[in-house]
Simulated scan of single mutants.
Amino acid sequence: MQKKYKLLLLSLLFDGIGMLSFVIPFIGEFSDVVWAPASAFLIYKMYKGTEGKVGSIVSFVEEAGLFGTDFLPTFTLTWIYKYVIKKDKAD
């Protein structure tokens, strides 16, 4: 399987983990405190360069629930930007 499709599967998985905070009331909000920095680190490592840097900042802000953005699938949106909009074929 090509690297870009592995990244897509991981992105969907990690976005799913991020959405779990909606499923478990109260505990979900606590999990965001742990998941926000973890997701920022993961997206930084998964997507090198500018996409990883910007994605990590957006992911942290989104998962921390700032500005009501906790519902955004940041990992998947980063993948779409890299491979669909930007059409990066290098990986």
Rank of each mutant, 00 (worst) to 15 (best):
F71I: 08
E29Y: 14
F22A: 05
L10Y: 12
L8R: 06
Y47H: 04
L10W: 09
I24N: 00
K48H: 10
F71R: 08
A38Y: 12
T76N: 11
I85T: 00
G65I: 03
G28P: 03
K89F: 11
V54T: 03
A36M: 03
I85A: 01
T74I: 15
I27W: 01
G18A: 10
A36V: 01
G18C: 10
K53I: 12
L9F: 14
D32Q: 15
G49C: 06
V23N: 04
L8H: 02
P73S: 08
F26W: 11
I43Q: 00
A90L: 14
G55H: 01
L12S: 06
G49S: 04
K6E: 10
K48T: 14
Y5N: 14
F26I: 11
T76H: 07
D70Y: 12
I17K: 09
W35K: 12
K45N: 10
M19N: 03
K86L: 15
F60S: 00
K86Y: 13
I24V: 11
K3T: 11
W79D: 09
G16K: 02
S56L: 08
D32L: 15
Y44K: 15
V61K: 02
L12C: 13
E29Q: 12
A36L: 04
M1D: 02
S59Q: 15
L8G: 05
L66R: 03
T76Y: 08
A38F: 14
K89T: 14
T69A: 15
I57W: 10
I27A: 08
W35N: 10
L42R: 03
V54Y: 02
D88E: 05
L66C: 08
F26Q: 13
